[in-house]
């Protein structure tokens, strides 16, 4: 099947590298300032090298509109930056692709958190799929785990470590006695935290992921403003040692209690032997189901290849479901 990749940063390039031997053909790539299209399939090593050298993946004269109007793809992969408020411009791109009868796979949380129900309806009308496994917890197959693996269960509660940056900072504060500013600086130096870490440390990123899980898998209909959000930026070392004295520690936990319509992100005191206590940048999600009981998923929540893994899983699912002619 033919793929168009919108956004050619860490995730887009990681995907381009892993697609080499998968039988998918990339026919178009766009970044913020350029694009390239070849109906017969692009030479990906060449596109990657050009991006590396010039900062542009293609020609400055063309863009997403040209890719859409070419129609030379079966699946649009949207991996441009997340806009938590409006989901744009990715939301419009995804809408157009679905309306054209093209499948969409995305790692971009904005459009899914802002407009999942609308996009899903549009996909259904046009007989195509909308894959978003990569939006929550990177490589961890939480979307298919809940939708397929635990189908038929009622989820009574969901708790998760959904932001690797916060988990890294809290792990280092506990293990090394670093203060919050020291641990944040270390996370920046290692490339785990953005120059502006607000979105992560204030709990907003984790909250957007909860909105996605709540709306797409737990039968809820909430917005980011419905989530009660507290970040980790005022956690003290004294708090960690008080927790430690009870055999516990502090982690940023996302919580969904569907029956109480309660969704919140907050630092919590959690026993050290709890399955959600994972180290470093790992992500973890525990669900309590009526039939299955407690089930915990743990894995890498970010990084080009873990994210590409989730995107590839969606791509394969679409190919298995739709590509009967091949």
């Amino acid at each position: 099947m033919r793929i168009a990749i919108i956004g050619f940063g860490a995730v887009g390039q990681g995907l381009a590298r892993v697609l080499a031997d998968t039988g998918f053909t990339v026919t178009a790539v766009a970044d913020s300032r350029s694009a390239c299209i070849n109906k017969d399939g692009l030479d990906l090593p060449e596109v990657l090298a050009r991006k590396e050298e010039s900062g542009l993946c293609g020609s400055a004269g063309i863009g997403i509109a040209d890719i859409l109007s070419s129609g030379a793809f079966d699946i649009l992969v949207e991996v441009s930056p997340t806009n938590a408020e409006t989901g744009e411009p990715a939301l419009s791109t995804i809408r157009s692709a679905l309306a054209m009868g093209k499948h969409v796979v995305t790692s971009n949380k904005g459009p899914i958190a802002c407009a999942y129900h609308e996009l899903k309806a549009l996909a259904d009308i046009n007989g195509v799929m909308l894959g978003y496994e990569a939006t929550v917890a990177g490589a961890v197959p939480i979307v298919s785990g809940l939708r397929h693996g635990l189908a038929g269960n009622t989820v009574r509660s969901l708790h998760g470590i959904l932001n690797g940056t916060c988990n890294y900072i809290l792990t280092r504060m506990r293990d090394e006695g670093l203060t919050y500013p020291q641990a944040l600086q270390e996370a920046r130096d290692l490339g785990y935290a953005e120059a502006d870490p607000t979105y992560d440390v204030k709990g907003i990123d984790a909250a957007i992921k909860l909105v996605i899980l709540a709306n797409t898998l737990l039968g809820m209909d909430i917005r980011l403003s419905d989530v009660d959000i507290t970040g980790i930026d005022s956690i003290t070392l004294e708090a960690l040692s008080l927790a430690e004295s009870e055999g516990a520690t502090i982690r940023l936990i996302g919580e969904i209690l569907p029956e109480r319509n309660q969704v919140r992100v907050s630092p919590r005191v959690i026993p050290l032997d709890h399955p959600l206590v994972v180290d470093g940048t790992l992500n973890a999600i525990s669900v309590c189901c009526d039939l299955a009981g407690p089930v915990t998923f743990i894995g890498k929540g970010a990084g080009p290849y873990p994210t590409a893994s989730a995107i590839l899983a969606d791509l394969n699912f679409i190919r298995d479901s739709y590509d009967r002619g091949a």
Partner: peptide, 11 residues
Amino acid sequence: ILILEPLGGAE
């Protein structure tokens, strides 16, 4: 004031 609530074991 920031309040940190406990998270119990799996419910």
